[in-house]
């Protein structure tokens, strides 16, 4: 169980997370949706310990992330997690199979002779084959994403944090990946948090859906309830409409970035 209470995260003067309360029960897949830049990735990074929250706490299986001290404790905590980075974050100096099995050395006791076989198995799960010896730079965007996914699940973690696992994939592959995530949940009892903008995949895999807005959780509910939510923000988001309460912010944001970008252009 992942239990976040009042998580606050600031970057310099900007407060990105303004008190996130969220509980992920063991065995469920919680999907996080929300506008670009609202702090979804930041929250995932807080959960695994890449970012340290400025307030609140995150407790996983009774262990508080911020209180981990010794290397052994931190290693033990990390061992529970698989993490799919939004941009993949594949090691570009290594081949695909070295990438996938990189964590096994540190996270498991599996002998290195079995690594290559494990890499092929993981690749098959994400619908890839015969790419073991490629370098990440030789792969397409969607292939990179799937290799990164294979790497996240290779050590068979009990928690998986997916940051946009289906972005950049074609519709069929999106469904394949959604099925894979469902399978991992059903068969291996993986507890997962998945960030996505893809409502179809969200409805398919979610046990519950949480909508983030301006650093807070707006609503957490079963997908069927989200579908008929009467919260205007949630409505607008799941329907993907430009009209609605979130519009104003977007316009402001665009105006702001446009005026920020101007002097930059002249400068360069």
């Amino acid at each position: 169980m992942i239990d976040a209470e009042g998580v606050i995260k600031r970057f310099g003067p900007r407060t990105i997370l303004r008190g996130i309360d969220l509980r992920v029960e063991t065995g469920e897949t919680l999907v996080i949706i929300g506008g670009s830049g609202c702090g979804k990735s930041t929250f995932l990074k807080c959960v695994i310990g890449l970012h340290h929250p400025d307030g609140g706490k995150i407790v996983v299986d009774g262990i508080e992330v911020a209180k981990l001290k010794t290397e052994a404790e931190i290693a033990d905590y990390r061992r529970r997690f698989g993490y799919l980075f939004q941009e993949g974050a594949l090691f570009d100096s290594m081949t695909v199979w070295e990438n996938i099995t990189f964590g096994l050395r540190y996270l498991t006791d599996i002998p290195s002779g079995k690594y290559r076989g494990i890499a092929s198995d993981c690749l098959a799960l994400v619908g890839l084959k015969d790419v073991e010896d490629f370098k990440p730079s030789e792969l397409s965007g969607g292939m990179k994403k799937r290799v990164a996914l294979a790497r996240a699940i290779a050590a068979q973690p009990s928690y998986i944090l997916y940051d946009e696992p289906t972005t950049g994939l074609d519709p069929i592959m999106t469904d394949v990946i959604a099925d894979l995530i469902l399978d991992l949940q059903k068969q291996l009892k993986v507890t997962a948090i998945m960030v996505t903008h893809d409502m179809k995949a969200a409805y398919k895999v979610a046990s519950r859906i949480a909508m983030f807005h301006e650093g807070k959780v707006l609503q957490v509910a079963h997908p069927d309830i989200i579908k008929i939510s009467d919260n205007p923000y949630v409505r607008q988001f799941v329907d993907g409409k430009s009209e609605g309460p979130i519009k104003m912010k977007l316009k402001e944001f665009e105006a702001e970035t446009a005026s920020n970008a101007q002097p930059d252009k002249e400068g360069s």
Partner: peptide, 10 residues
């Protein structure tokens, strides 16, 4: 993010 990835991979 490859440095962060090192961390998540143990």
């Amino acid at each position: 993010d490859q440095i962060d990835a090192l961390y998540t991979l143990g």
